[in-house]
Design a protein around this nucleic acid. Structure first.
Lengths: 236, 236
DNA sequence: CGACAGCATCTTGTATACAAGCAGTCGCAC
DNA sequence: GTGCGACTGCTTGTATACAAGATGCTGTCG
């Protein structure tokens, strides 16, 4: 279970746990006992505990002292936040495009879109390309570094999106929306780019809403409180 | 040195260290030995170490394995990021204002501005009111929760701003810019609100640039690398 | 006097032991 | 059968011991 250690054990454990949470391999409500994880990963409690603290800071995990740690349910408030922030940042970046865009960056995006269009593309692969595409858009206006913040706020949104990718919206639809944004940017039609971006981001958000209706048990209640005991969901 | 413990020791230590870093009581380059901090705060290495990990995740601290932990210098890239994100989010919020704004929220903002206008206001007090004002603006459009993300990305920006508040820009100037934004929002002139917001955010950014020129040793180099050894700044 | 080798000391990373508290269960009393 | 209480086991929070490595000093040799 222990992957080859690149840096510290904590970095490896953190990356492993975060991936499993975002891919729903560890679904909302799953118990994350520090002792069990340490044994499963072949390390001590220390790196596991430090990883859980970081994941809790991201809102992906809830830690209840003396009770246990659990994968948090998808918080609609956080999803809406992430969506709002993402939309604000990406639209603002479109307003900051330079007169002449770096041809290399454009070529990278075009290549990315080509790979998105491959029929039968694996969902995980598409998801990675999707991330890269949005990062690439930010880079066009020199704001690539802002992606880190957007990405950090995006944990809940990503989990909800992944459900949507599995259940309904095919990658081809998303890829087409990406292509529309790219074409508008390349031709310098900022107004159209804005419109295409809004269409895409709203579609993502609609996906989340639809998935929420069909899988309410994976989402937290609207009142903000998200009580979880053991593996049982309690709504109060 | 140990303040009354509200929750866990880690929460207390984290809050204490974060405050000292943001207020420059612990300036960039300061050594943060886990052993020394533990002894000074009257706790063991564990809560101190966990706090440093969280601060490192925020970019406020740099941890060098087997060497030491240090308060990071202000990173111009992160400052620009935070500024860009903040501007994007706050401008987007202005576009999302409802037809009729909650009078209570407007009254709160007006009250806040009154307190900002007090002559001879302490800088720390003004800074707190400034935070509250921008959060209040986001709340007008129901996006108050997004403040958390903006705030998390804002650590470097805040440190740079605090220098500016001490050295140059008087609170009255900032308060006047706040008032201009508020008046435009209240009268429903979104175009003017946008303009006033841009004026304010750009002024903040200009402050940072100016402070950087006069205190280059507190800032990281442009190339992204920020080597620090002991208490000595090394530029390579 | 200068350069280099070795060591003493400090650092963070990890493992482990102990503390305090919640939960669910088992058993006893009624 | 039913209700209540002690208890066993598990949880996270904290303290401490050990591991591996980097740094800078110090003594020695050229």
């Amino acid at each position: 279970m222990l992957t080859p250690v690149a840096g510290t054990n904590r970095q490896t454990v953190y990356a492993t746990l975060r991936r499993k949470v975002l891919t729903m391999e560890l679904p909302p409500g799953a118990s994350l006992s520090e002792n069990e994880l340490a044994a499963a990963l072949g390390v001590s409690r220390t790196p596991v505990r430090e990883s859980l603290i970081l994941l809790a800071e991201e809102g992906l995990v809830q830690v209840f002292p003396k009770i246990g740690s659990f994968v948090s349910r998808v918080d609609p408030v956080r999803v809406a936040d992430a969506q709002f922030i993402r939309e604000a940042v990406e639209l603002a970046a479109l307003d900051d495009l330079p007169e002449t865009i770096d041809p290399q960056l454009l070529a990278d995006l075009d290549d990315n879109l080509s790979r998105q269009d491959q029929p039968g593309i694996a969902l995980e692969d598409f998801f990675a390309l999707d991330e890269e595409f949005h990062l690439g858009l930010l880079r066009l206006s020199g704001h690539g570094a802002a992606w880190t913040t957007v990405s950090n706020a995006k944990g809940h949104l990503d989990r909800a999106r992944r459900l949507g990718l599995h259940d309904a919206t095919p990658p081809t639809v998303n890829a087409a929306q990406h292509r529309a944004i790219f074409d508008a940017v390349r031709t310098g039609d900022i107004t159209e780019a804005h419109a295409a971006m809004r269409v895409h981001l709203r579609a993502v958000f609609d996906d989340v809403e639809r998935i929420r209706e069909s899988n309410p048990e994976l989402f937290a209640s609207n009142d903000g409180s998200t009580p979880v005991r053991r593996n049982v969901v309690v709504w109060d």
